[in-house]
Design a protein around this nucleic acid. Structure first.
Length: 433
RNA sequence: GUCCCCAUCGUCUAGCCUGGUCUAGGACAAGAGCUUUUCAAGCUCUCGACACCGGUUCAAAUCCGGUUGGGGACACCA
């Protein structure tokens, strides 16, 4: 039975790198009908925080990575001490007293070559000369990372340790501990790191950090997972946008690349836009409503869901993120549109009182107010005035929305409604009432 | 500094294992065009890479060595 684990430490939020490690573990378990175990590595009492545990668990759930079991290292201290005692008794470890800190248990590293067989990288050989004696139990009685990790992976029957590249140099230390404790070795697979856009470490500057931030920015979890999937792995046949079930069929940890990949926000945005286009507009409405409430565009207890739904359909094809919806559709929710000064200068500097009031009158006299009849009357008007369509359509859009970009004008008029349209036009009509 | 990992378009990658089918394929980005009611979408096209040097071989992106470059690790953090 394949058993893999994801072992975050709750000293920060779940970030892109961690999410990718979780994804590959979870995916491998699913692909091989194995089990995915979650282990919270909270041995550092000072830096671990409950709020981070909550954030990490929440983000994993949001991404869709359900786990079979969950463990907390803080609850297993006795077990680590027990194993340390065993090594002490066998003379493989010793105690060291330091006046400031107290007594620690330290593992004796014997000179030897250590070879590990990595599923992704093949054989790697280390000389233990470069490895110092390792602290197993700190003087506060808690276990160090490398020790707790080995004891846990063995106790939890982890068959494959899939983790980031940055753990390669921990591996020989851990192998030594497995051997000293007489425990069977798991298979190791070290994933290449994810780099920031400029090639360096992933940071706030090079691409936001926490997964919960991506959620807030209006990324769909399926899209984020799909993008992460494509970093250091390719399904072949030039496939890119693919649902997770398809990925489960095609994925194998052996096919993961060795090369680090840079995180590219552009491509994430593109994939997200593809998913937004395909997603059920009802679901998008569900996601977008809290964003609108947050901006006070709608009232939490009293809003027209159907209206929001219609607008979602209007914008769905042109969004990179759902946060953009709140940004671009703002004029549907406010009393007056926020004017873009440049757009105003360009399209509304000229006096269009006559044209605007004529259009306003035509709208008022419409028996049936719908997109097609609005368009008909507009085209008729333009014809009568003998002007170009665009000469009137752009100023109208700016007057109604404050922007030069957005959905089709007739849809805008329709969903704005007769009253609000007329009110917004009136502002630009001089000397008439 | 020591140890380890890595190296194909700006970015993600296919190809590498099992040399010839590679004047290196796809996607994102960028640029141009079509369409058009703006923006976007969509469609078409363009730009653009085997890090370098040497070796093996009839033949190297592919195998070997070195150089350079990038990344990571060297805690009583995880």
């Amino acid at each position: 039975m394949i058993r893999v684990r994801f072992a975050p430490s709750p000293t920060g939020n779940l970030h892109i790198g961690g999410a990718r490690t979780a994804l590959f573990n979870w995916l491998y378990a699913r692909a091989k009908s194995g089990e995915f175990i979650l282990r919270i590595e909270d041995t550092d009492k000072l830096r671990s925080r409950q709020e981070y545990v909550d954030e990490i668990l929440g983000s994993l759930k949001w991404l869709g990575f359900e786990w079979n079991e969950v463990y907390y290292q803080s609850q297993r201290l006795k077990r680590y001490q027990e194993c340390a005692e065993k090594l002490l008794a066998q003379g493989k470890a010793y105690k060291e007293k330091s006046p400031e800190k107290g007594e620690a248990v330290i593992f004796k590293v014997m000179p030897q070559n250590i070879r590990i067989n990595d599923l992704i990288r093949g054989e790697i050989v280390f000389d233990s000369k470069a490895i110092k004696d390792q602290v197993l139990i700190k003087s506060d009685g808690t276990a160090t990372y490398n020790f707790a990790c080995v004891v846990d992976d063995a106790d939890m029957n982890i068959s494959h340790v899939i983790r980031g590249d940055d753990h390669i140099s921990n591996t020989p230390k851990q192998v030594l501990l497995y051997e000293a404790l007489g425990l069977p070795l798991p298979v190791f697979a070290h994933l290449p790191l994810i780099l920031g856009a400029e090639g360096g470490r992933l940071s706030k500057r090079t691409g936001a950090t926490a997964i919960s931030d991506y959620r807030r920015m209006g990324y769909l979890p399926q899209a984020l997972v799909n993008y992460l999937l494509l970093l250091s792995w390719a399904p072949g046949e030039d496939r890119e946008v693919m649902d997770i079930q398809e990925a489960i069929k095609l994925f194998d940890i052996k096919d993961v690349n060795k090369t680090a990949a840079a995180f590219d926000m552009h491509k994430l945005n593109w994939i997200n836009s593809q998913y937004i286009k395909e997603e059920d507009p009802q679901k998008i409405t569900d996601i977008v409503i809290p964003l609108l409430i947050e901006r006070k565009y709608i009232d939490k207890d009293n809003f027209d869901r159907n209206y929001v739904f219609s607008l979602v359909k209007l914008f769905q094809g042109r969004l990179n993120t759902l946060a953009e919806f709140a940004e671009w559709a703002d004029f549907f929710f406010t009393e007056d549109p926020v004017m873009d000064p440049e757009a105003e200068e360009k399209f509304l500097a000229k006096d269009l009182s006559r044209e605007f009031s004529l259009f306003s009158e035509r709208l008022a006299s419409l028996h049936v107010f719908e997109v097609s009849t609005i368009e008909e009357s507009f085209r008729q008007l333009v014809k009568e005035l003998g002007i170009e369509t665009r000469a009137l359509i752009h100023p109208l859009r700016v007057a109604l929305t404050g922007k030069t970009i957005g959905p089709g004008l007739f849809e805008v008029v329709y969903y704005l409604g007769r009253e609000r349209t007329e009110k917004r036009l009136r502002r630009w009509i001089k000397g008439r009432s």
